[in-house]
Amino acid sequence: MDRLDQLEAHSIYILREAYAQVEPLSMLWSLGKDSNVMVWLARKAFFGRVPFPVILLDTGNELDEVYAFRDEYVGKWGLSYVNAACPPLEETDPSLPLNSRHAARKTLGLKRILAEQGFRGVFLGIRRDEQALRGKERVFSPRDAEGAWNYKEQPAEFWDHYKTELPPGAHLRIHPLLAWTEIDIWRYIEREDIPVVPLYFARDGWRYRSLGEKDITRPIRSDAASIAEIIAELEVTRQPERAGRTMDHDSEDSFERLRASGYM
């Protein structure tokens, strides 16, 4: 087994562990490259089906190509799709910097859909290498009724035994891609031929490396127009993946505050 085979097998193991023990389940489908890989892995784990709803936290502000991708693949992949409309900016914590407040709309949207539908577990496509705080995550990460993340009191997690029991009102964030890197994701997309939003590929010297909402996401300078070129670019780049995500860089602790209060 090469590195991709190992990652795939472990992610499938995680998906099946959750499906056997946590109910009801759902999956966040941001339509980015990582969440597409996650949906793909679910179809592998469950023999072609995704046996739980996939949710888009919709700010109404996603890039046009993202909506087009959704409309095409909900049907093609046979997904049970849930559109979770995010509350407006006015409802977010006004003490956060503006860019973080845009991101916080998703936190509120997630909180609302979890409460409405009573999901006990939700899959998220975050990875440890994306961001230092995400590096601290567990694969099965419990959240209290407010969605808050108590990073100082995380459960012990070893030997692939995961925390699956929770007090009423709490839920689990389940992270099947935690051990993957950005390059792993692209290599897997290439190997499996997984469709992605075309914005990732360079046009006129620009491409998106990470997709977010219109107002708070910027493309990067790049000529990488194919997966092979993207991989080659990532092998040498010193830029962090989320450099184009302005909310991460508002202040020294803005992402920490977002995550502690329930952001993905």
Partner: peptide
């Protein structure tokens, strides 16, 4: 030391993965 709290205490709190 990604966490603010850690820098203040100058102790690593949790496992971190770095490549």
């Amino acid at each position: 030391d990604a966490f603010q709290a850690e820098r203040d205490q100058a102790v690593t709190i949790d496992t971190t993965q770095i490549r």
